[in-house]
Amino acid sequence: MNSIEVKDLHKTYAGALVPSLQGLSFAFPEGSIVGLLGPNGAGKTTTISILCGLVKADSGTVKIFDLPQDAARREAVKRIIGIVPQQIALFPQLTAMENLTYFGNLYGFKGASLKQKITNYLEAFGLEKAAHKEVRKFSGGMKRRTNIIAAILHDPQLLVLDEPTAGVDVQSRSMILQFLREYNRQGKSVLYTSHLLEEAQQICEDIVIIDEGKLIIQGRPEDMIRQHADCRNLEEVFLLYTGHAVRD
């Protein structure tokens, strides 16, 4: 079974001159860890927004573990998908514990079991000492790690991360990547976007490169590099397909 199956996805935002997605299609199997890569404006965030039901596609289909992402099944999809948005989607004036307790309550968890679960995650991410500190006083790395915990409180089968390591220090990045590998090892699927191609090459089993709303190439990173004799790493493959022109 595929964890994500996207077919012929089209999306043009109201008032936009250029479509964000133009027939994008890709799929990857359950239990894999996949990198969705592309230059700025390639359509990565739009794709993620459609995957989690925040934005409606003009046409095309999306299936999450064979469940169509439509109005009738949106709630079922939400239960099996965890999203880590690019923004720190937390309440800055609340402590990490208060934030996570609130989101846990919204998922239907409560009491001692929720508290234990939060404590375990805070320890796993090295945040146990900061549990009762307001999030606004956190460093960038601490915020990113708390942001991830908020997305996995309900143990989703598919974890989607939009640039989870942007703006964090080396230690935090290492911890986050280590967590993603561990999560994937438990049989969970992971889709993540990043501009750090070395990082993607390091942890992803599969890579999807998109540009101008279309699929450019999909495959294992080592296969992609091997196919192009003049490319020594994933970054060179990426530049080969997307060009050197600066995107805004």
Binding site: C52, G53, L54, E75, K78, R79, I81, I83, P85, Q86, Q87, I88, A89, L90, F91, P92, F103, L106, Y107, G108, A150, A151
Partner: peptide
């Protein structure tokens, strides 16, 4: 603020009716 800092997005991604929130 909830919309700007992204917490609204998270609230909408959580299963259950947003109207209850």
């Amino acid at each position: 603020r909830e919309r700007e800092d992204g917490s609204l997005v998270r609230l909408k991604l959580i299963p259950g009716n947003y109207l209850s929130i």
